[in-house]
Nucleic acid binder design. Structure first.
Lengths: 224, 224
DNA sequence: GTATTATTCAATAGAGTTATTGAATAGAAC
DNA sequence: GTTCTATTCAATAACTCTATTGAATAATAC
């Protein structure tokens, strides 16, 4: 094998990873796996496609080395193959935000108050949580919350905010977060809370980035 | 447009970037552009493909927001559209190294002395350069060296090492670098220098990562 | 103006990717 | 052992991507 062939092969190997990232459905799968492990059927529901298609996408992700799988009982659970993959997704997000005008347009499509939705950086939130100055709201589904969340966060999916508003202390700012900077649930929560007259912003990133940055994580639910 | 559609569209936008990364040729182009701007013909030669193919790949990269172009005189020069793209490529490299066993195999295929080729981290090199303890060798082509290099580095492509060995001080360790962690020229330089009895290692990353990290860069050639 | 040059466009054939369908597999439950 | 279930495999048709060729464009040089 010549040196030129080695080089070509090397870039083809990296292109395998690029190919794995070249489908919206697969990126959705990766985003969900960044929360924790999932089986095929759950992923199929979450990404709104057939089980067979989901399985094939997962095979591709596995061949590219992005996810790993293990069978536990009746289910095959998939998870991200390492922390470097969270960083790759974050880099992809960063490039998208910076260079695809379309991305910004879509994010803001239904959330028009541009300056009013300025996100809170993770470090700022951490300081204010320590001082008890802020109520943190985790708007992900309960099972994702149970698998790990920001310490002291209250778990309340967007659909429950209307009924359970009284559980959120008044007079303090609320910071909502979900799965990542492009998970739309935190946007919705902020809009909903503002309708109710509360002061709310969203966390700049989501839980996977928080955990990946080595910030503190709580596993058991204290105020469930 | 429903909320679900917004989400799907959003991930499709990110997938556009993934698609741009899904070809070995395009990754090679990006790697060369990380050195500095290039015209179409040069890139075609460097990546060993026709000009028309190169042009089409560049159009795709441009649509994905990864490269920008401007016409200067008779030539159209392409360049990376921002620093976030260098970071994306670095994240891709990191994932590849961690999870694609094939990548490691290829990198080591012709450079077998595994432990002997431990790379030097950028920070360590910077400290030792300041103290004058090390000779830095830039093995890229002269035009890339001219566009910017590590301060004090001697420019010497691999093919020239044999003839110009006397320009390299004896008794000091040599650290070679080129275009990035997967640019093979630095590996070759180390092998060549060791054959000649010199103590040589390669820089962990390459010049684009060095510049991207905000480390000092020299533009004019002092010891050319 | 005409020739030259760098780049892009257009058309095409071949290769690869996607979603869908239904069958196959491999464990677990009984 | 038989049934059940989650997942994977296989075959297909629609679609997209790639490399190639040669023509079109647009700016420069003369």
């Amino acid at each position: 094998m010549s040196n030129k062939t080695v080089k070509t092969d090397l870039f083809e190997q990296f292109a395998r990873i690029g190919k794995a990232l070249a489908s919206g459905k697969r990126l959705q799968i990766l985003e969900f796996l960044a929360q924790g492990e999932r089986n095929v059927e759950t992923l199929a529901q979450l990404t709104d496609q057939s089980i067979a298609s989901t399985s094939q996408h997962l095979q591709q992700l596995r061949q590219a080395g992005l996810v790993s799988a293990s069978k536990e009982g009746l289910y095959v659970f998939y998870r991200l193959a390492g922390d470097s993959i969270v960083r790759l997704l974050a880099a992809l997000h960063a490039v998208g935000q910076e260079h695809l005008a379309e991305v910004d347009r879509l994010v803001r499509l239904y959330y028009d108050s541009k300056d009013g939705l300025e996100p809170v950086p993770a470090k700022e939130l951490l300081q204010r949580v320590k001082k008890g100055l802020v109520t943190v709201l985790d708007v992900r589904p309960p099972e994702e919350y149970a698998a790990g969340h920001i310490p002291g966060a209250i778990n309340m999916p967007v659909s429950a905010i209307r009924k359970r508003l009284n559980e959120i202390p008044k007079g303090q700012e609320i910071v909502a977060y979900c799965r990542g900077p492009y998970c739309l649930m935190a946007f919705e929560a902020v809009v909903e809370l503002r309708k109710k007259g509360r002061s709310a912003r969203r966390l700049e990133d989501g839980f996977p980035e928080w955990r990946s940055a080595g910030l503190p994580v709580e596993i058991a639910s204290p105020a469930g």
